[in-house]
Every structure is written in C-alpha cells, then in structure tokens.
Design a protein around this nucleic acid. Structure first.
Lengths: 100, 100
DNA sequence: TATATTGTTGCACAATAGTGCAAATATAAG
DNA sequence: CTTATATTTGCACTATTGTGCAACAATATA
C-alpha cells in the first residue's frame, strides 16, 4: 500500500466519519431512487448550505454521484464502490500475516 | 440504526480516517505479534507523544488493545472487531432496499 | 540509590473543519 | 420579464484536532 493509497483511503474514511455525513449516507442507503438535496435536509441537523457542503465532500470522495435534473440535483449512493473499499480494508485487516 | 449507533460508527470511522492513525493500523496489520509504542513510531510522521495520543484514540475506539509488560506496552490490532464493523457497514450500504 | 528507557500528559499553537446567514446562481414556472 | 424554488458560495466565527516540546510517571537496570 503506497502512501498515496493510504492517504486516499484515509480521506474516504474521514468523509464517512462525520455524523451528519454518515447520516446522509445511511439515508441514501434506504432510498431506491436518487434524492435531491432538499429532500435530504431533514436527516441531519444542518441547514441547506451545510447539507450542500457535506454532499460536495461525499461526491469528491466518490461516495455519492450527482445528476443534474433541471433545477434540482439528484444524489445517489455509489453502493458498490463504497462497499468494495470497506471490504478491501476489512480483508487486509483480518488477514493475519504468515509466520515467516 | 439508532442515532447513538450512528454516532459510534462515525467515531470509529473518524478514528481510522486520519493518515497517521491509519498508518499505525496498517502497520499493526502486518505484525504477527503485539508491538510496543516506540517500535511503531517510525511508521508515521509524528513524535512519540503523538503516537501515544493516536494509540490512545485507537484504543478508546476498540480498534487496538494494549497489554502492559513491564515498562513497555504492547499494542495489537483487534482484527475481528474492526473487520466486522467495516463489513456490517458494507453490507448495509450494498443492500438495496426492496421496492415496496 | 542513581540512571536510563518507555510512555503519557499539560501547554501552547497552528491548521482544519463544521456551521449559519446572507447573497449569488441557476433554472423553472407564471 | 418576474417570481419562486433549489442549490451553492463567501464570510465570519467557533470548535475540534493534530502537533512538538518539555515535564512527568513508571519501571527496569547498574
């Protein structure tokens, strides 16, 4: 694992490791269809601008995707991507090194 | 998922989501045997006091365990615990809700 | 007892992060 | 064109976090 990979992984975990952002992720988890930002406002204790900023961070980390639809933006969770990252780390952690 | 559970999970992810702490975790990953703090110092770019503080946070979150041995302390990674938490989240994220 | 080793803690400080509010932007609708 | 809705951004502010240094505590060794 290169330092850059490690940094990238840390950034992903940091993005997930904030209460309001994790709330947003969990909320998106439960939605079949993409949700717009206003709709997501009530799942965390910040105003619209705060939600916007949190969604921006989640987007930058590849955790969610945005699709512009008229004046709204639809956010959806990149389920496979995030799950893959978490499982890769879990695998690495659980793999006890061979006794050499 | 209760707000308390969510907060707890966020705390775990936050603990993992800092570069130097994640370095420590990855380093412990590769060790068969518990390591003392001094031995872990060279895997991240902070001095002994910084390592001590990071290990304290990791311990508080249950990510690592400590065992006192004389004047040294041996740290080991709680592999099963961390892997379990990460996989649980991955499962939750990947489970698309049923169309109702 | 004196000294070296290991690790933690208090303090100060700089950097980062999260927040609300108000203004700006963008687009849709009337 | 005017207005309403959705979202972003600038600004200011506060809180949190990461850090090194020096002092301290605890334990082993000479």
């Amino acid at each position: 694992m290169t330092p850059a990979d490690l940094q990238q992984l840390a950034d992903l975990l940091k993005a997930l490791g904030e209460t309001n952002r994790l709330s947003l992720v969990c909320r998106l988890c439960e939605c079949e269809k993409p949700q717009n930002a206003m709709c997501l406002c009530d799942c965390c204790s910040v105003d619209a601008s705060g939600v916007s900023r949190h969604l921006k961070i989640l987007t930058q980390e590849g955790i969610v995707s945005v699709e512009r639809k008229g004046r709204t933006r639809s956010y959806s969770l990149n389920r496979a991507f995030v799950a893959r990252r978490l499982r890769d780390l879990a695998d690495r952690i659980e793999l006890t090194p061979e006794l050499s």
